[in-house]
Write a protein that binds this DNA or RNA. Structure first.
Lengths: 332, 332
DNA sequence: CATATTTTTGCAACCGGTTGCAAAAAATTT
DNA sequence: AAATTTTTTGCAACCGGTTGCAAAAATATG
């Protein structure tokens, strides 16, 4: 069907190596030869087969993009940024949806069979073991949104979740709340655990502030709503730090149903700063996670690893910042 | 690095063909041979290289998943369903983000270079020419959410947008609105054009109903909000049919700012029934597009085409239905 | 048991490219 | 113009598999 190298070589009356070289940059070809070959190639509509090429070059330019977050709107943005960023560098994302998949082995094997050059694991809820499984097979891996560790075993790019928890705590204290609560996502997620730890650590410096906590089933609107409905059966705190924006919005909706007003009766601070949080009829005060930088950095790190696979694992952390909107009472 | 066919053959003391056959189903291998080979393979941790295999079998099991909708939350659901559905059938999505890319040629060439078995174009805003470019190169293509045509040139799976427009019109008339408006997405999108046509056609049967129309810049919250703010400078209609849920929510937010109430002062009906529409603090009445069926059907069609590439192009259309929530006044 | 039939196996060519090496051609130097 | 150096080119082996074909082995038939 499609024209091959050999077809072009025949048509141009040259060797296959000559054709190959014209399509490999940095190879030695004379101007005359190049012109002759390019003419024949254009007439045949030839372009080299990447997969055949990969057999000898050992580079496919395929990058496994592995995630289990196909329900949180922020991940649409994540996929947008990743795909664009990879494309700009001539890399191609092979998307793997891990929803309800627990065992890394299948994915590892499959991505190896496709000879991906590297793997980006984009998730804050997958166990670190997942990323390590790739590293153990010698596949360069970056765990984006992964857990920061002082002795990282794989490359991690993301934020310091504990620090973010502290930031939320400070903000609530600053605004004069004296009875606050942590309403986290799934307790098993390392991101939740770390934010919780940071939140509590900071508050322990302010003994006059009472603190409670609970965890929603997952990072979703309905989980947040349900959790707040449950909490409302007992006395509520003055302000809640939610593990995620979409969770916060669920909470907001439940609060409204109860007949309370945000921020007058109850303060709310979210996490992520997804686009929806900025919608004027939501206007959620939240902690912004610099997704764009995180993703750009992840891709840059991946590119660096392609040249230097045994690069020493590093953690790249980006600072978060508070985006003030309408769900916390004004600073006192 | 990784073990190859030859390594396994050596270790097991058999020919490479024998090893190849044990990993190809339907090939003739004796039980003894299979056991011997499998043992050696297991010890070496061997699994076949798909790309090398694809060279001779001419099947990569890669499917290009091409879209330009990386900002509409409904597409997260779309990607979730596509990736899961493809994975279940042993196919692998190679994701292509077409945002701001207008020329199909690059994508076509790139996907050809990776020898994808087929391409799914998931977009209602890309011109039909895009899908045809793949077909012209002999690549099986399904245009999901594409435009229905009585003489389709490529396979289309989606809804009958004109019919959906009629459905919206009927619903508004039924509820006694006599002054209604169409607030579409980008005018260039075929989906917008068709819904508009259907909407107008149905209303022409009800001469007592006044109708106006306008178009937002794109399918986004801010575009909807801006458009409604603009419209509010002149007298408003009683009810609006919006081209998309996220657009509707933008409209809703602007309406609220003006000091009007939905549905008492102004009715609103959206399109898509994305998850956010069901959030209790949004509660948007909308037209449900059966995304799940559309995607399952798209993938099934793709699988069928892999066996029969010259299959006669068909259009598969699924009926929409109205989801009643809180943004239209009750039936009179 | 010899012969015919079926199944299993290995050889060798091929899929579409790349690349080390040496010969050929072109450009420099003497 | 001959000798030397540099650049360009083609040969042939290879990347990791599959597959048609014929030989070998196993099974069935007379």
């Amino acid at each position: 069907m499609a024209a091959t190298l050999k077809d072009v070589a025949n048509k141009a009356g040259v060797s296959t190596s000559a054709v190959s070289r014209t399509f490999t940059d940095g190879a030695s070809v004379s101007v005359k030869m190049r012109r002759k070959v390019e003419k024949a190639a254009a007439e045949l509509g030839y372009s080299p087969n990447f997969l055949a090429r990969s057999l000898t070059t050992r580079r496919t330019k395929l990058i496994g993009l592995v995630s289990n977050n196909f329900h949180n709107p922020i991940f649409l943005e994540v996929f947008d940024l990743f795909t664009r960023s990879l494309q700009e560098r001539g890399l191609r994302p092979l998307l793997v949806n891990l929803s309800k998949e627990i065992d890394p082995e299948n994915s590892v094997q499959m991505l190896r069979q496709y000879s991906v050059d590297g793997v980006i694991v984009a998730s804050s809820t997958l166990p670190p073991m997942f990323s390590k499984a790739f590293r153990d097979k010698g596949i360069p891996v970056v765990n984006t949104f992964g857990r920061y560790s002082s002795s990282p075993e794989v490359h991690v790019v993301g934020i310091d979740n504990a620090e973010a928890g502290k930031m939320a705590a400070r903000e609530l204290v600053d605004r004069g709340y004296t009875n606050v609560a942590f309403l986290g996502g799934p307790e098993a997620a390392t991101s939740t655990q770390d934010r919780f730890k940071g939140f509590m650590a900071e508050l322990s410096k302010h003994p006059h502030v009472t603190v409670s906590h609970s965890f929603a089933e997952d990072y979703s609107f309905q989980a947040g709503r349900a959790e707040m409905q449950r909490l409302a059966q007992s006395p509520l705190a003055q302000a809640y730090f939610c593990g995620d924006d979409v969770l916060s919005i669920g909470v907001m909706s439940a609060v409204k149903d109860i007949g309370l007003n945000v921020p007058q009766d109850l303060g709310l601070i979210g996490f992520n700063d997804m686009e929806i949080a900025s919608w004027e009829n939501i206007a959620l005060t939240t902690i912004h996670q610099p997704i764009k930088q995180i993703i750009t950095s992840s891709v840059e790190l991946m590119v660096a690893m392609l040249d230097e696979p045994d690069r020493y694992p590093e953690a790249r952390l980006f600072p978060c910042r508070i985006i003030e909107r309408d769900t916390l009472r004004p600073r006192s």
